[in-house]
Design a protein around this nucleic acid. Sequence first.
RNA 1: CGGGGUGUAGCGUAGUCCGGUCAUCGCGCAUGGUUUGGGACCAUGAGGUCGCAGGUUCGAAUCCUGCCACCCCGACCA
Length: 502
Amino acid sequence: MLPTIYKHRTKINMSKALPTRADNYSQWYQDLVVKADLAENSAVRGCMVIKPYGYAIWEKMQAILDKMFKDTGHSNAYFPLFIPKSFFAKEASHVEGFAKECAVVTHYRLKNDGKGGIMVDPDAKLEEELIVRPTSETIIWNTYRGWIESYRDLPLLINQWANVVRWEMRTRLFLRTAEFLWQEGHTAHATAEEAIEETRRMLDVYSEFAEKTLAIPVLKGVKTANERFAGALDTYCIEALMQDGKALQAGTSHFLGQNFAKAFDVQFTNREGKKEFVWATSWGVSTRLMGALIMAHSDDQGLVLPPKLAPTQVVIVPIYKGDDQLKLITATVDKIITELKAKNISVKYDDRDTHKPGWKFSEYELKGIPVRIAIGPRDLENGTVEVARRDTKEKSVMQLTDLSIKIEHLLEQIQDNIYRRASDFRETHTFKADSYDEFKAKLDEGGFVMAHWDGTTETELKIKDETKATIRCIPINNKQESGKCIYTGNPSTQRVVFARSY
RNA sequence: CGGGGUGUAGCGUAGUCCGGUCAUCGCGCAUGGUUUGGGACCAUGAGGUCGCAGGUUCGAAUCCUGCCACCCCGACCA
């Protein structure tokens, strides 16, 4: 085999406009991720490089989530990347769910092939193959066996930030990559009730994060048996709606019952001195949230970031002729920066003279910086600045007096506004359907379709097969109403949420 | 893994049917100058194993064979 020559990109052609969302949504998404400098495809098939700007957003997500986990009593730890194959086999439905997408390490050494290249050393075969973790339940529960003896050791509330590998056929930047970053919480409890409570608590943490930080409204619900996590008794999820009308699962929280405790023999002695199997949960969100963020808010000009996640919240662009003017402007800008920083607002002053203001405006729109301040000689005379907000593209002239307070409020308004906009979109794209024909018609419009279902996997699969729509979830506290299944006509007690999804 | 498509400079491309100064143009990059309130302009310049390997031919980006990579559509999934 010949060495492959990889092509490297250094710069991206910014002068080319994005395709519009209406024109080609998936192309718009792919181009936006690359042009906004969030991530790019790597030399490794299916794996992405997360670039500094994209990673900075992920780090903000991590920081906020991590605090929420700590505030709910969890501690971080780290477990191995590799999982012995035998561990994996211990929980039957778990294996079945993940077997088809596992990367496996079979050897531990390379050697010279005698032709100037290298080869896998056939003498260095591992006694037992190692699976590159697609999720860590097995290695963690094998470890927990040694940590849990008594009810006094419970609950055990652990989270880990890690990478995982799932060998996907088709990949898309952030939405589905062979390797991705995530957090996985794994908790152990004395009772089922307590574990279920934990599962629901973390679902609430996720939905609060999605709505308050990502500014994305989400539906909280339970998955059907068919969509359940491999090894779980119940899978809860938050489901978001993207601008093309497709649903995206943004986070999951699982009640694992005693499945893993039994598979790994994790027992504790209760207050009565009797041995019992431990009750478990696991929950996770991944870099897929980046995809959700992009697809929920961005427009044909580029990224739209919620202020709470924007690495730079305010950019200041000077407009000037000659160094003397720039110096005067900079003196005023320095004061603005000091004021903004005092309010914990992240601000960047772009005084490069290698690019014109117009170029910078476009650049920062593409990158989704929430607020842009432009300041030129006219402003110096008037004691004003021009303030432009990314979400609505409105521009206004503001007096310098109390500017930082006005900007602080503006950032809050932007955060609220993009949430409201996403919320309105979801409302206008949530439908009820009472017949199969109506159901199919609504699906084609895009969005969530609430319909009666007879509760059988068979019907669910047939609908999926015929329409490509799946049951996204059965909403928590769902309204009970009697009706007839849109597919079979059999009786049903509630509507469930269908959609085509990512 | 099936079905379709595409590989030419960092990016986007012309040329491929019909082999012969064809390696084209735009963006980007470098240098100098003029510019700067919505992606500036002029001048000069650098940059290419035409995806890879064979074959046909006097001659291959172009024809033939094999391979590789990527993209789109399906099955699978956070």
